[in-house]
């Protein structure tokens, strides 16, 4: 998957946007921790929890995509259409973030993260690494446009393990900034966050563009490649993907 590095960069730079939402959770993980606990370790465990959830959701999306294309294979090339849909959404989202398109006025579930911080308080302030892990697991479920867009991308892979991989890579990309924020507090100014976000936006646009191109290519395949609709499924689906042994972490 040539997008994987792009997805990683999308996650890495896109998490500048996440700092607004998930950042406070990471900070309260440090602030609420009992004295003497290893902050870096807690932050890493928290991120592992998040990646675990992203991976789980990615696997579910990938499985859903596989199931959908299997169910509808005689009707439409749903995997191709999913790729196009995910691509278009990523394009739109990237263009909106880059400021090319106007920002939609209504924000879906905008107030949720604040409520989530209250709900996760017990986990965030619990001693030991278990609380941090569980807090991370639940943080991963917080609605986020960026996550949704990449989930659609994961669904369009039409393979469970590829879906898992897509989201896990995205999650890995979000680790550095989140850990730094949680560990070192507010080190990025609003201006620098905006600049990073701008670069991230174009990464997302690029990922979307590739996804659309891939979908269109699948819709008009060269005659000999009709059955091999995803060259990676074969390779990864055989069981040699890194996902097999790791989901349990």
């Amino acid at each position: 998957m040539i997008e994987l590095p792009l997805i990683f960069v999308g996650g890495l730079l896109g998490s500048a946007h996440c700092l607004g939402m998930c950042g406070p959770l990471a900070i309260s993980l440090s602030a609420g921790a009992p004295a003497g606990s290893n902050q870096l370790q807690r932050q890493l465990v928290f991120s592992v929890g998040r990646i675990f959830t992203y991976g789980f959701c990615g696997a579910a999306a990938g499985f859903g995509g596989a199931w959908l294309s299997n169910e509808s294979r005689t009707l439409v090339l749903s995997q191709a259409w999913l790729a196009i849909l995910a691509g278009v959404l990523l394009l739109l989202m990237g263009l909106v973030t880059a400021g090319v398109l106007p920002r939609p006025t209504a924000r879906l579930l905008g107030g949720l993260p604040c409520g989530a911080a209250v709900g996760l308080k017990t986990f965030l302030s619990a001693p030991g690494w278990l609380g941090a892990l569980i807090a991370g697991v639940f943080t991963g479920f917080i609605p986020c446009g960026l996550v949704y867009a990449f989930l659609l991308k994961a669904g369009s892979t039409g393979d469970m393990w590829l879906g898992w991989l897509t989201m896990a890579v995205f999650g890995l990309g979000t680790v550095p900034l989140m850990v730094l924020v949680g560990y070192g507090g507010q080190f990025l100014s609003v201006v620098s966050r905006a600049k990073i976000l701008h670069v991230a936006a174009w990464c997302i646009v690029l990922t979307g563009g590739i996804s659309v191109a891939r979908g269109v290519a699948q819709l008009n395949p060269p005659a000999e490649a009709v059955t091999a609709d995803c060259p990676f499924c074969e390779a990864e689906g055989q069981g040699n993907s890194p996902g097999v042994a790791t989901p349990g972490l």
């Binding site: 929890g49 675990f52 959830t53 991976g55 789980f56 696997a59 579910a60 499985f63 017990t122 986990f123 619990a126 278990l130 609380g131 892990l133 569980i134 807090a135 697991v137 639940f138 469970m160 898992w164 989901p247 349990g248």
Partner: peptide, 18 residues
């Protein structure tokens, strides 16, 4: 934490089931 841990384990079970 018990509840959270159970959710964590269940998500694992779901991945293997999928």
């Amino acid at each position: 934490l018990r509840l959270g841990l159970a959710v964590f384990f269940t998500m694992n079970v779901m991945v293997f089931t999928m």
